[in-house]
Write a protein that binds this DNA or RNA. Sequence first.
DNA 1: GGACGAAACTTTACTATGTAAAGCACTTTC
DNA 2: GAAAGTGCTTTACATAGTAAAGTTTCGTCC
Lengths: 217, 217
Amino acid sequence: MSETPTRLLDAVDSVIASHGPSGVTLRRVGTEAGLSHTAAAHYFNDKPGLFTAYLTRAYDQVGVHIEHAGENADARAAMLDAAAVYAQFALDSPSPFSVMQRLELCNVDAPELWAARERCYFGVAAILVRNQEDGWAPDRDIRDLIATTWSFVHGFVELWVSGPLAAPYDGEDFVETLRRVFDDLLNSLAYTGSGARPNAKRSLSPGGLETSQSESA
Amino acid sequence: MSETPTRLLDAVDSVIASHGPSGVTLRRVGTEAGLSHTAAAHYFNDKPGLFTAYLTRAYDQVGVHIEHAGENADARAAMLDAAAVYAQFALDSPSPFSVMQRLELCNVDAPELWAARERCYFGVAAILVRNQEDGWAPDRDIRDLIATTWSFVHGFVELWVSGPLAAPYDGEDFVETLRRVFDDLLNSLAYTGSGARPNAKRSLSPGGLETSQSESA
DNA sequence: GGACGAAACTTTACTATGTAAAGCACTTTC
DNA sequence: GAAAGTGCTTTACATAGTAAAGTTTCGTCC
């Protein structure tokens, strides 16, 4: 079960834990896995390839959890659960999470990674669509709803984990706080301010994810 | 006016523009500035020092713009302006913006950088407080308001710039879209769902910013 | 049962990078 | 006019990614 590539990815995990994502070295990973300094390159081509495999594995795990959240019969609860999944992941798995903020380390265009990320994206989008079908914020452009909720959750988690938000909420539980504030936000969004758009209830663009090119490392 | 350190920071800018933040090399920066490969280290101590100076300069500029936005007599408009400042900055200055997402490249604890960032933070917080004093969302915990708006704007800009959001809003103007969606959000937040908290109108924690340690590079 | 060949690594070697240390020229100061 | 500082460069070295070739192991086919 634990063949070499898996062991290498696990080694990446522990190297990130001890040295941060920038401290990841093919040589360190090799040593950590009890192999030579070129073993990782042998299996994953090069350093970006190694990170790509590592991150794909992480997104696959998150995807599973999000889809599980989506199975909640209560659409609103599913929404909160999905946000909590992301937050909990950031908390429990800081190493994979840190690589999510460092896409330049990976081959962003790799199809496996792409697929794993779209899986998460569509999981979330589906939950939102279902909420709207259930009568939540019916007049709002679904794109705006996705943009608002996704931006909020993404920003909240990032700002909490990186410090600025955790300080004012000193001592309070991260995931609980996110659930509460997010729930408030969802309530508010149910009210249509001046937000009803002429082109409301537009369907999702087929594109799904689309990411900027990775820089030529 | 354009003494050597300034020229080096400008060199960083053009190196990031052509090679991305990870493509920044003391040697490249030196060459780009017409100096030796150790010139940057001579002035800024080391690579993190160079990035720190570069980022501090960027935050100072943003801070000026935010404070300017804060001078808008209309509190609500000031809020939208501040968000637009951030978005416009991400658009106009992708190189400094990219380093903002890469704090590990810098000495996060450097007091100049800290000060420049707090200046931005307090500029934004002040605008929000003023909005609430003006009667907007009066029952809501100010911390929640800051968390919600800041997380949203931060997430929106990041997701747009890095791709996922720009796709569904294909062709639409970035800053305009942010203003519109953010305005909708502010309207919604004026409605108190179940969001009124027992400890509402709590004052800001004195801490302001607080950031996780930089990894030992 | 022995030759062939592929899979799973390792060894070697080369180039790029960060950084410490010393050097060197030019200017200021006394 | 010597001493001390300023503003850089030169030199040197350890660490990194990666290409290429070598080695070992193991299954397979005749």
